[in-house]
């Protein structure tokens, strides 16, 4: 019974290009109750896996991680067929100066936003989720992301075209599946047709990322200024 269950789950997850390690699967199965219907278990497994750190929970086949020499800067352009599963560790809005982002975060902290020249008070919603959803204008970027594959390899990526689901409001640790992406000089160029945003997040990372965002932007603004 447990064996069939394991097989069913593996098949379900593999179909989504996720190859969990044997130990993760075992631990997961030990937490499920045998009477739970299979579809529910499949869903729970996917949910948990997406909320996990893929560097410890996935053991991907070679095609589903980045090639080991992917960071080589001398290669002008190469196509990585994938599908590569990776998680987002960081995202930066490179269409706006860091300082202007700091200013808009501060305005939001004060509960203000501007509508033309009018300063508008934003009344915070009761529950946390809707406050973000109601946040005024979503920047269109473009964005620079830091991605990590199951082997722990970290690589920069650019979203220059505007891909649904990628923004500075998204959860850190969200999982992406990349197919046929162009990697230029060790940087992934994301295109709408090549990226599937699968979802999930890494709670601790996401929280720390959101809390520290303003400080990081301020520090970054100061550094680039002294470098320039």
């Amino acid at each position: 019974m447990a064996a069939t269950m394991a097989a069913e789950l593996t098949q379900h997850l593999n179909a989504r290009h996720l190859y969990p390690t044997a130990s993760w699967l075992q631990t997961f199965l030990s937490t499920t109750r045998p009477i739970t219907p299979l579809p529910a278990i499949k869903q729970t497994a996917l949910f948990r896996l997406l909320a996990s750190d893929i560097t410890t929970t996935l053991k991907q086949p070679a095609a589903s991680v980045f090639p080991s020499d992917v960071l080589k800067g001398t290669i002008k352009s190469r196509i990585v067929t994938g599908p590569v599963v990776c998680q987002v560790l960081d995202i930066e809005d490179i269409g706006h100066s860091r300082w202007s982002q700091v200013e808009s975060i501060e305005a939001k902290e004060r509960g203000e936003t501007t509508k033309g020249r009018e300063i508008v008070r934003v009344v915070e919603q009761e529950n946390e989720g809707t406050a973000d959803a109601a946040s005024p204008v979503q920047s269109k970027g473009p964005f620079k992301l830091l991605l990590q594959d199951a082997k722990g390899l970290k690589i920069y990526a650019f979203d220059l075209r505007g891909i649904d689901g990628l923004s500075t409001n998204m959860a850190m640790g969200v999982k992406l599946v990349l197919r046929n992406v162009d990697v230029r000089r060790g940087v992934v160029m994301l295109e709408p047709g090549c990226v599937q945003v699968v979802g999930g997040k890494l709670d601790a990372l996401d929280k720390a990322w959101k809390q520290g965002r303003k400080e990081r932007l301020m520090a970054a603004a100061r550094t680039v200024n002294t470098l320039a």
């Binding site: 002008k76 930066e92 490179i94 269409g95 706006h96 100066s97 860091r98 473009p142 620079k144 920069y156 650019f158 220059l160 230029r184 000089r185 940087v187 160029m189 680039v224």
Partner: peptide
């Protein structure tokens, strides 16, 4: 304009 030099270099190269 963009605030990331690497991005602009890559685009420029393309």
């Amino acid at each position: 304009h963009l605030f990331d030099r690497m991005a602009v270099i890559l685009i420029f190269e393309r």
